[in-house]
């Protein structure tokens, strides 16, 4: 049944959030640190474990998970329509420059970090490219 897929994702979300909250409490922040990340990791581990054992989800269970992923972009569109855009545009010079330059800086660092870390993580790959 499709609901099993929805339930599996829900289960991952609950366990992941619990881990995130405990982690947050452990490092002294009253909040969820990486809960979504832990949930995603759990879902990946479950599916790859099953793949290893050559068991696959029932098609309908899979349909439930895929329904949720398909809802992702509509959810993001809904999310964008409830942002405080007025505050962003009227926050004044400090808010606009601080937020804007930080964004541009982050984006421009993507190729830099990629170059630095990926090369050191995969030395073979870069030598192949050079050759």
């Amino acid at each position: 049944m499709e609901i099993f897929g929805l339930g599996l994702v829900a289960l991952c979300m609950f366990i992941g959030s619990l881990v995130g909250r405990l982690f947050g409490t452990a490092i002294g922040i009253s909040g969820d640190v990486g809960g979504v990340g832990f949930s995603m990791l759990l879902l990946i581990l479950i599916t790859s474990y099953m793949e290893g054992k050559k068991i696959s989800f029932h098609t309908n269970t899979e349909k439930g998970i895929l329904l949720l992923s398909a809802l992702y972009i509509p959810v993001v569109v809904a999310m964008s329509s409830i942002q405080n855009v007025v505050a962003a545009f009227e926050g004044g010079l400090v808010a606009f420059t601080a937020g804007g330059v930080a964004t541009l800086g982050g984006l421009l660092l993507v190729p830099v970090i990629t170059k630095l870390t990926v090369k050191s993580a995969n030395p073979n790959e870069s030598t192949i490219k050079k050759a």
Binding site: V9, A10, C12, M13, G16, G35, V36, S39, M40, L41, L43, I44, T47, E62, I65, L66, L68, S69, L71, Y72, P74, V75, V76, V77, A78, M79, S80, S81, I82
Partner: peptide, 20 residues
């Protein structure tokens, strides 16, 4: 829209994208 675009649905949908 606040519910559909809120953090509950956002996180639920994001987690499902990890499938695959």
């Amino acid at each position: 829209v606040g519910l559909l675009g809120g953090s509950m649905f956002r996180d639920y949908a994001i987690i499902s994208t990890a499938y695959g």
